[in-house]
Every structure is written in structure tokens, then in C-alpha cells.
């Protein structure tokens, strides 16, 4: 049985996109499969790992947990929109320098969690930085370098 389709208009990384999507399409599938923005990753599909973290209307969300239709008329920020052309975002530079990306699978979500934090709290304490990424699981780094990178980026931006 076909799910009814809905016309949505979403601003993704500054660019307005209009598409017909099934009402039950997740924002994650919309980004990855319909728009080809595969930088956002799926780790569990249940909102537990944070690999699919994106920013919608200024708030950090798990893209697997919300429908694409819920993003209608809103701004969506993904890892692909972080850099300004060739110029990396301070978080990206800090992650690279600190060794905060090992396998790299959690990295896009971690970067977006870091950005959501710095957008509302430009100079977090170590504890606040840890809270900012608490919903994002990483199995490689042990988190220390990620927290360090968020703190470094805060200093730079």
C-alpha cells in the first residue's frame, strides 16, 4: 500500500529544495536517498547512537527519528554544509588536528552536535562539551579528543 505523498520545501545547507515525499519518509532517508547527501550516517535507526545527527531549525535532532515532512519550511544543516567552500569550519579543523576522527563514522554527527552546542554556548566548559555530545556514541576515540576538539573550536570561532 502506497503511503500518501506530501509536497515539502526544506532549506538544506542554505539551498531550498522542493520534493514530493511519502508521509512516513524519515528525514535521514530523505537526505541520503532523495538528496544524495550521504555524509549523514545511520548507526541504529532507533535514535540511540546519534550518527544521523543534523540541525533542524537550530536544534540538534536524530534524522532517523523525524519525518522529512516535519522539516517542511525549516532550515536543515548537515555535515556537507559545514565548510565554507574550501575553507573548513573551525570544528572540522579542530577535529582533524586533535585526532578526533578515527574510523570517521560518528564524525558527521559529532560535528553537528558540536555545532549545535557552540551555536547556543560559544564557550563551553569541558563538562558542557561532554554533555553536548552525550547523545552521540563513538567507539574508537574514547571521546577525549572529541571534547578537546570542541573546546579548541570554541576558542577559534
Amino acid at each position: 500500500m502506497e503511503t500518501p505523498r506530501i509536497r515539502i520545501t526544506v532549506t538544506v545547507n542554505g539551498e531550498a529544495v522542493s520534493e514530493d515525499v511519502p508521509g512516513d519518509r524519515s528525514l535521514l532517508d530523505f537526505l541520503r536517498d532523495d538528496l544524495g547527501l550521504t555524509g549523514t550516517k545511520e548507526g541504529c535507526g532507533e535514535g540511540e547512537c546519534g550518527a544521523c545527527s543534523v540541525i533542524v531549525g537550530g536544534r540538534l535532532v536524530d534524522a532517523c527519528l523525524i519525518f522529512a515532512a516535519e522539516a517542511d519550511g525549516r532550515n536543515v544543516e548537515t555535515v556537507e554544509g559545514l565548510a565554507d567552500g574550501e575553507v573548513l569550519h573551525p570544528l572540522q579543523r579542530a577535529f582533524a588536528a586533535a585526532g578526533a576522527a578515527q574510523c570517521g563514522y560518528c564524525t558527521p554527527g559529532m560535528l553537528m552536535a558540536g555545532k549545535a552546542l557552540l551555536d547556543r554556548n560559544p564557550s563551553p566548559t569541558r563538562e558542557e562539551a561532554a554533555h553536548g555530545i552525550a547523545g552521540n556514541l563513538c567507539r574508537c576515540t574514547g571521546y577525549g579528543t572529541i571534547i578537546q576538539a570542541v573546546m579548541e573550536a570554541a576558542k577559534e570561532s
Binding site: L37, T38, G39, V79, A83, L88, F95, A96, A101, T107
Partner: peptide, 9 residues
Amino acid sequence: ILEKVTGQS
């Protein structure tokens, strides 16, 4: 590292 922090990997 560049691919990893830009989502291009």
C-alpha cells in the same frame, strides 16, 4: 582526514 570531517568518505 579531510574526507572524514567533510562527510565525503
